[in-house]
Simulated scan of single mutants.
Amino acid sequence: MGFELSVVAVIFFISALVVGSYSYSMLNTSNEIVSDASEEHYQMQNSKLKTNLEVESAVAGNYSGTYNLTVTLSNTGSETIRFDELNVLVDGDLESYVYSDVAAIWTPAETRNMTITDLSGTGVHRVKIVTRNGVSAYSSYIV
């Protein structure tokens, strides 16, 4: 009877060690994931706080069924923006755009032009420019 009790105690002890080491490794991995996510969240917030852009003008070209819209933007923040990663919405619809500058890097205090082609409709319209980190600028124009 004493030997059986000793074997059971050893089995419980080994089981407790295995479960404990597995639990520790899982908790450690979870803690690293949360720590990495917190760091990434901080970097995204910091980037968003430093990003600012301004629509200086939005001018529609001659209307003949469709028109081209030329938007002049200024990077008024302290963060460098990728000009080719902007999203342009005209009246809530995502539109493609072209830009004449060779470099896609848009440094602070720099002004750029973009052209949105083949737009339609007359009256008052609204254009929204959104950076990859969610900062946006709005403007209205009349066709």
Results as ranks from 00 to 15, higher is better:
G20C: 10
N133P: 14
N46T: 12
I129Y: 03
V8M: 11
I116P: 09
N68F: 04
A37D: 04
T80R: 09
A137M: 00
L49W: 08
T66F: 00
E95P: 01
I142V: 09
D101M: 07
G121D: 03
L119M: 03
A109C: 05
S21Q: 14
I129S: 00
V71S: 02
Y42F: 14
N46C: 06
A58C: 02
E39M: 07
R112V: 00
V34R: 12
D84H: 13
H125G: 07
L17W: 00
E39Q: 14
A9R: 15
T117C: 05
I116A: 05
G134D: 02
A58V: 01
A103Q: 12
W106T: 06
T111E: 12
I116H: 14
T51V: 08
F12H: 14
G20I: 11
T70P: 08
G77L: 02
N133G: 09
G65K: 11
D118T: 15
P108N: 10
E56T: 14
G2V: 03
V10P: 03
A16W: 15
N68G: 06
R112D: 03
L89H: 10
V135F: 12
R82N: 13
G121F: 00
Y24N: 00
T131Q: 07
I142G: 05
H41P: 04
T76P: 14
N62A: 04
Y138V: 07
G123V: 03
E110S: 04
S100G: 12
L49Q: 13
V71F: 00
N75L: 05
R82V: 01
I129Q: 02
V34A: 14
Q45Y: 13
G92E: 11
V124I: 10
